Simulated scan of single mutants.
Amino acid sequence: MNAQPARALMTIGDVLGLLRADFPDITISKIRFLEAEGLIEPQRSPSGYRKFGEGDLERLRSILTAQRDHYLPLRVIKQRLEAQDRGEAVPPLETAGRVPAQDRPPRTLVAADAGAPEPAVRLTRRQLLDGAGIDEELLAGLEEYGLVTRTGRHYDGEALTIARAAAALGAFGVEVRNLRALKSAADRQVGLIEQVIAPLLRRRGPGAHEQAAGTAREIAELSVRLHAALLATGLRESLDP
């Protein structure tokens, strides 16, 4: 990247605020992931904070537009950017990997019962890859270790959340194999919740199943809060001098 004047430099929070109007799904984790993948190279302050110039901001806009509007995978976007950096001519986005509109999959597939209180999200493999900003290798690893599964040919909304989180953690050097401990802990929590609601599921009265589901959700929420508090306590103890 070309050096930017100090007065033009922005923090990652500034960049997030400027992008969010056009790209509501953008997050700090996504920006960090794009940096880790080599698509952007913000400057660093002496204390290590990222500093972005106008050129970095426009590069991010280009990447996000290519993903959202033209369905290009990150690998192709990176190749295009590297060619531009070398001064080579690249075809316009309108013709790069273009898919006819009638053959283009919808960005989000939902269950047929759209009138349900929380219609289930159903994503194709390509939608999951593009939505999470990950490549085939990472998704294959998530599937291999059981962190992401699919029903038939589709993935649910939780798979998207898991994939995005795994990508963000990857930017910090956390590998998929390291996430097995989190998966095991989650499985143990599920087992505990199943034990608690088992008596409710055995009831045959009206609303028994709904009551069990509500209880399971409440216990899950409490478990997440407890886990966060325990994690914060452990970190505080380990970081205290």
Rank of each mutant, 00 (worst) to 15 (best):
F172N: 15
D156S: 14
K183P: 05
Q189D: 13
G205K: 02
I197Y: 06
A116D: 06
Q4M: 02
T161P: 03
R153S: 08
Q67F: 04
R44M: 03
Q79V: 02
R86S: 09
R203M: 01
A213H: 07
P117M: 05
N2K: 15
D85W: 04
R164P: 05
S29H: 10
V176G: 02
A8F: 15
R202L: 04
A96R: 11
G214M: 02
A140D: 15
Q195H: 12
L57V: 08
S184P: 00
F172W: 14
D187F: 12
V90T: 15
Q211F: 09
R153W: 04
R7S: 13
Q4R: 11
A8E: 15
Q195Y: 01
A220I: 00
A3W: 07
L74M: 07
L64P: 06
G157M: 04
P100F: 01
D25P: 13
Q43H: 08
Q43D: 05
R122W: 07
G170D: 09
R80Q: 12
N178M: 07
G97Y: 02
L34R: 05
E137S: 12
L81T: 05
E37A: 08
A229G: 01
V174H: 10
R164S: 04
Q43A: 11
E136C: 01
I162S: 01
E218C: 12
A181Q: 07
L239T: 10
L169P: 13
K30Q: 04
V110L: 14
H154A: 07
F33P: 00
G55R: 15
L123F: 03
G170T: 02
R50N: 04
P46S: 08
R61Y: 05
L138H: 10
P105D: 00
I197T: 04
V76F: 02
I193F: 05
E118N: 11
E37T: 15
G97N: 03
L230R: 08
R202S: 09
Q195L: 12
L226N: 00
A171P: 10
A111R: 11
L129I: 08
S62T: 15
R59T: 05
R202I: 00
L192E: 05
G205M: 00
D69Q: 14
P92C: 03
P106Q: 06
G141Q: 10
V190Q: 13
L81P: 12
T108A: 03
